[in-house]
């Protein structure tokens, strides 16, 4: 298990390094730059500005300087928001995105897995059909349709929760969390259901039934592990995507998270911010993938002995 852990961590670090290098050079290779916009600037001013941001140095020197910065959580100044560093911008938005995201991931996992298992055990029952229908709706209807509908009903008509913003304690959380969790509940419940049905047909589950240990134990001690493994594999990348913020959710509910920077930064050619966002997302993604792998290794001896 220890060897497996070390190997996975080393893989993660390598991937991080590759991501950092690739993003850096691809960004610089893309035509145009942050100061090549509409207004003509005199060569002297341009040279001064580029010197201020170290853009006049050789690319490799810039790269090394950047890597040194990243190791100290310094992503440099933002080109767009002159008074802020990238680290400031990320740290300001992250708490909002993380709070919404972690809750949504938790709600999606618990609800999705529970509904999936119940659906599989009571196949073709009313519960199975209704969760199935909800799942299809949840996957098919885009969030930018569902979220405003939720606002109209629960915020404007029933007045249970605020329409948006962050000023109402836990109430502010409910609608964005539910909206963010919903498609994932749908997907996870389908995934769990199908995986559980498949596992219940496994020969080793039949062996367990033959041992007469009772249906509860057969499901809990034998079927559940196999059924949950594909879900765990899905949860790694899915959680990373959920907690790094959703531009749609943050826009609709007027939340100052980091989701919107994904798009804004690229449009503004704000190199340091794009790099910062990419590295943050990459870091979270790799971390959660390693987490999912460790969980899989813990559940499945064949994975950790590999």
């Amino acid at each position: 298990m220890l060897l497996f852990l070390i190997r996975r961590l080393a893989d993660g670090l390598l991937t991080m390094a590759a991501l950092l290098t690739l993003t850096f050079f691809v960004m610089r290779l893309a035509p145009g730059g942050p100061f090549s916009s509409n207004r003509k600037i005199s060569p002297t001013i341009r040279a001064n500005v580029e010197a201020a941001y170290n853009l006049d140095q050789p690319l490799v020197a810039q790269y090394l300087r950047y890597v040194r910065g990243v190791l100290q959580f310094d992503f440099g100044p933002s080109f767009r928001y002159r008074d802020y560093t990238v680290a400031d911008i990320l740290l300001n938005g992250l708490p909002f995105s993380l709070t919404i995201g972690l809750w949504a991931a938790l709600v999606a996992t618990v609800t999705g897995v529970t509904l999936g298992i119940l659906g599989a055990l009571k196949r073709n029952s009313l519960l199975d059909y209704s969760t199935g229908t909800i799942a299809v709706i949840g996957i098919a209807i885009p969030i930018f349709v569902l979220a405003p509908l939720m606002q109209v009903y629960f915020a404007v008509m029933l007045r249970w929760f605020p329409v948006g913003g962050w000023n109402d304690g836990w109430r502010s959380l409910v609608l964005p969390v539910v909206a963010l969790a919903l498609p994932n509940i749908a997907y996870i419940s389908r995934l769990t259901r199908n995986s559980m049905i498949e596992t219940m047909r496994e020969n080793y589950v039949r062996t367990a039934r033959a041992k007469g240990i009772g249906r509860g134990r057969v499901i809990r001690d034998h079927a559940l592990t196999g059924a949950i493994l594909p879900v765990v594999a899905y949860l790694g990348p899915a959680t990373a995507a959920i907690i790094t913020g959703s531009i749609v959710i943050e826009t609709i509910f007027a939340l100052p998270g980091i989701g919107r920077h994904f798009v804004d930064a690229a449009l503004n050619r704000d190199y340091p911010l794009v790099m910062g966002i990419t590295i943050l997302y990459g870091f979270v993604l790799i971390t959660f993938n390693i987490g999912a792998d460790i969980l899989r290794g813990w559940l499945d001896p064949r994975v950790r002995h590999d």
């Binding site: 080793y204 033959a210 034998h222």
Partner: peptide
């Protein structure tokens, strides 16, 4: 059972 390869629980 017939197939010993799949009749034991691989996770236990």
């Amino acid at each position: 059972f017939q197939d010993p390869m799949t009749s034991l629980n691989p996770y236990k």
